[in-house]
């Protein structure tokens, strides 16, 4: 149902009806008015912010140039770097655009925008695998990992709410047994989403929590088990080993489950996100990325660097603190949004 919702962004009437329907189905703690307005305006707001950042600048730059020269490219380079795309990926994009300009004998400054758009899309669609959440067929397990403070717990709350609304039986495992009050925080989210949670005490072995979560998911015939993990900096060897252990338990105890390992990345993060993705990929074979906090002024351009370097697709996007502020990442729409007039 949410999929449908996402596909029909322009049909606001339809959307409102469906949103209301969701509200009826779910008496969560959120106030209803908040939700009605919130969902789509936030969705748009989040995107328009990304859009503003790059497009406006590109337009200003393009307008100030009469012919295509080195200086113009340098300015475009600047725009991409300022969006956290990263030096290497930016260079690659600009080089490719330059090549195409030569190839196609382009002389109009305006056409550069189309080329840039094309180029960004190319990077985002390089990964030809399915970039929607991989949770079919049931049962499925979603392991959520990332460095500290990126929004793992919040993302899990939103995801649980969303999947439940799609009619799935969702179970959460509170695998962050380290951070103070992480379990309470997740419990609160599970209440809001109206799903069950498996939790141990603070300080318990996270692998044991995940193990119990898996057993419970089997016993209760849950469709999706979402596992929280403690935030960990990817350069901490022992913590990454711990994560690897959790990952192995999932593989061993739940081989029949469809697996999705999501790395949560804060959109304000700079180039370190690439290293994060690389290290987490080694430890637990991440299969997708959730880009959070895209409702700020950060452009989230590091997504391009991550995809370009590691071929791990972005699957979901967080655009606010409310339970419905989670959307599918659509590379086409994303680029279109970035470059729309």
């Amino acid at each position: 149902m949410f999929k449908k919702l996402f596909g029909k962004k322009n049909n606001s009437e339809n959307n409102n009806q469906q949103t209301q329907q969701i509200e009826k189905e779910n008496n969560t703690t959120e106030s209803e008015e908040n939700k009605k307005e919130g969902f789509f305006s936030r969705l748009k707001k989040g995107l328009s912010k990304t859009r503003k950042g790059i497009t406006e600048k590109v337009d200003v730059i393009l307008k100030s140039y009469k012919k295509i020269d080195e200086e113009l490219f340098e300015e475009l380079e600047e725009v991409l770097i300022t969006a956290d795309v990263g030096v290497n990926t930016t260079m690659r994009i600009i080089e490719d655009v330059k090549d195409k300009v030569k190839e196609r004998k382009i002389t109009e400054v305006e056409e550069i925008r189309e080329l840039l758009k094309e180029e960004l899309k190319e990077i985002l669609t390089e990964v030809d695998e399915n970039i929607s959440l991989n949770i079919e067929p049931s049962p499925a397990i979603v392991l959520v990992v990332g460095v500290n403070g990126v929004g793992k717990t919040t993302t899990i709350g939103k995801l649980a709410y969303r999947l439940k609304n799609e009619g799935k039986k969702v179970l959460i495992a509170a695998g962050d047994t380290f951070r103070a009050a992480a379990i309470e925080q997740l419990t609160e989210w599970s209440n809001r989403a109206g799903v069950d949670i498996i939790a141990h005490q603070e300080g318990a072995d996270p692998a044991a929590v995940i193990y119990d979560g898996i057993q419970a998911a089997k016993a209760r015939k849950s469709d999706v088990l979402i596992c929280d993990t403690a935030g960990r900096l990817h350069n901490k060897k022992n913590l990454m080993n711990e994560l690897n252990k959790i990952f192995r338990i999932v593989e061993r105890e739940y081989p029949e489950a469809t697996k999705e390992v999501l790395l949560v990345v804060d959109a304000t993060t700079g180039q370190n996100a690439v290293l994060q993705a690389k290290t987490f990929k080694e430890a637990c074979d991440i299969s997708g990325i959730v880009l959070t906090k895209l409702d700020g002024t950060a452009k989230g351009g590091v997504v391009l660097a991550v995809q370009s370097e590691l071929k791990v697709p972005v699957k979901l996007v967080g655009v606010g603190e409310k339970i419905y502020d989670l959307q599918d990442f659509d590379p086409d729409n994303f680029v279109e949004a970035i470059f729309s007039e």
Partner: peptide, 12 residues
């Protein structure tokens, strides 16, 4: 401020 912050650190 998170040490991993990117270009947006200036705006923030």
């Amino acid at each position: 401020v998170d040490a991993m912050t990117g270009q947006d650190a200036v705006t923030v």
